[in-house]
Computed example of a mutant assay.
Amino acid sequence: MQPNLKLLLSLLVILYSIQFVKCTENRLEQLERIVGKLQDTISMLSKDNANNKRLVEDLKFKVNEQEERIGALEKGCKIESRIASSRAMKKRVGYYNDSFNEAIEDLNANMPFWRKAFEDLNANMPFWRKKVKPNTIMKRTSFSDRGSSENVAFFAFMSQDLNSPSVAHNLIFDVTPTDIGSHYNKYSGMFTAPRSGTYVFTWTIYCSVGGYVYEQLMVNAEVLDSSNCNADGAGWHRSISGTAVTQINQGDIVYVRTHPTSLNKGSILSSSSHRSSFAGWLLF
């Protein structure tokens, strides 16, 4: 680049000096020589430009070659990483295969022990178990297998409070969320046994603040159990619950009533937050 600058500077100097040359016959030769020098300089500059263009083209070609080499190197690196991953995977698979083979060998080595253990188990099996065939399925009997008439259960509660209940008053639990078999009468508060068997009955009574109520669980005209809800002197309502298991006959009537002689005070409470309820079901 420095020779080109020098040539340009010389051209400028020559052009600047031409302005001061007087057009005389003695100077014509000098001007011709100057013009000749200018032409030589221009031809040299043209050659330099051509060389520079070739240099630029060569550089572009070399840049493209380098880019191709870089792309090839990147592909090679990716292939090498995949090869390394596959080698690592092969090592893991080989490890698992070796572990599996060792486990199989241990199992084969200990097979006589397990075979003898099964033989001893079969030899010591109870007599009744040996009678069962291998493909026999033992079916468990459930209540649903006995028929719908065997399923007996009910749950009922009072829809509202009962104010000042009298003596020997049958308590009516008039809401029945559960009544399997339809053996509970929500209008009379009485349950009628559909068949003889063992039944479970339970009841819960809430009494008002300062009050008390005496209850009895009745089977026909006989008292089976009794309870007393007592909130006398309490600052909040109280409750009492009772449970009885009894064997009754088909057609027997079970219900809850107040005591025939003991007086009651206050109310029996029943609401969404505390329900007075009565329930029962066939046990077997």
Score class of each variant (00 low, 15 high):
F127P: 05
F278K: 00
E105N: 15
L5D: 05
T243D: 00
V63H: 09
S182G: 06
A231G: 12
T202C: 06
M190A: 08
Y95H: 08
V35W: 10
S17T: 10
Y96K: 08
N264P: 09
T176D: 06
P260V: 01
L11S: 10
W114I: 14
D58N: 15
A72G: 07
S159P: 12
L59A: 14
S10W: 05
I70K: 10
L73P: 00
Q39G: 05
N249K: 11
A234Q: 14
K75E: 06
Q247G: 12
A244R: 13
I70M: 09
G233I: 00
N51W: 04
N101G: 08
S208Q: 10
L121A: 14
T192D: 00
C77Q: 06
I172N: 02
K131A: 15
Y95K: 14
Q66K: 13
L8E: 00
S99C: 07
E67P: 01
E32V: 13
N122C: 10
S262P: 00
Y184L: 02
V21G: 03
T204F: 01
C207E: 05
N170S: 08
R87L: 08
P126L: 12
V254F: 09
M125H: 03
R238I: 04
L73N: 09
W281C: 06
S226P: 04
S182P: 07
I172A: 01
A231T: 07
F154M: 02
S226W: 06
S273M: 11
M125N: 13
A234V: 07
M44F: 07
L282S: 07
L9K: 15
I248S: 06
K62C: 05
N49D: 11
A84E: 06
S270F: 08
A103D: 02
F284H: 15
N249F: 04
F61T: 15
E150F: 14
C23I: 13
S227Y: 03
K130S: 08
E215Q: 09
H169R: 12
I34K: 09
N108G: 04
L282Q: 00
A279C: 02
M1P: 04
G94S: 09
L107N: 05
T204R: 13
I253W: 00
D58W: 07
T198K: 14
K131T: 13
R82H: 09
P165H: 04
I42E: 09
R146W: 07
V175T: 14
A221K: 13
T41E: 02
Q247E: 13
Y199N: 07
V35E: 12
A168W: 01
A156K: 07
Q216Y: 02
V175L: 13
K139R: 15
G233D: 02
I18P: 00
F20P: 00
L38P: 04
R275G: 02
S277M: 03
N220Q: 09
